[in-house]
Design a protein around this nucleic acid. Sequence first.
DNA 1: CAAACGATCGGCT
DNA 2: GCCGATCGTTTGC
Length: 221
Amino acid sequence: MARELPTSPMATNTLPRQSFERDALVVARELLGCVLCVADRQHEPPLRLVVVETEAYHQRERGAHCFGGRRTKRTAPMFAAGGITYVYLVYGMHWALNVVVEAEEVGAAVLIRAARPMPETAPEAFARIAARRHLDASKTPSQIWRDPGRWLDGPGKLCQGLAIEGRHNALPLEPSSGVWFERPPKGAQPFEIVAGPRVGIDYAGQDAALPWRFRAVMVAA
DNA sequence: CAAACGATCGGCT
DNA sequence: GCCGATCGTTTGC
């Protein structure tokens, strides 16, 4: 029986910068199944979650904040080289986490729409998420409360549960910043990718129909 | 300076 | 299914 060797913190599975300096649609698909890591509390292990839903945005289509190369104070991070965050406030009350992709000067990003806590998530970590999401067994419909996989099923819910806010904008995706991604763990549950139209972008006209939303659908064992 | 507008969510009909 | 909340960013006067 092979014995697990101790893993050095430096020899990690962390997705390197180059992973993000690629086509937005490719990255949007590849992030599914990867592990989003967020150091939400000092001196506590980071929260670790499997990414299950993403959306791609690119300056060539009307769904993107940076459509046509529109560069404003808000959209500036989208034009950086891939590998940093783009966090913005939607509807005056919800934060949304994106990863900037593609080359410098190209406006593109992947919105992280949903994630599921890893199976080995500690009870204390679940408690932190539940408290921020105001999930209470006595007030939350039982089918939601009993399934942590639904606790973070939307971009606003994800940021609320992980305590991601404006201060996380334009951070490099690496452990030192407190936000990073890791490759899918070995033995992870297999899934299929289902593509469909992005939501909440009626203003994008024809581009709203682009199948740039990607969901990981678990395959029965 | 004023005003419109959201890459959403939760509550209610 | 519809509707209101809520505020930083953006644009127009």
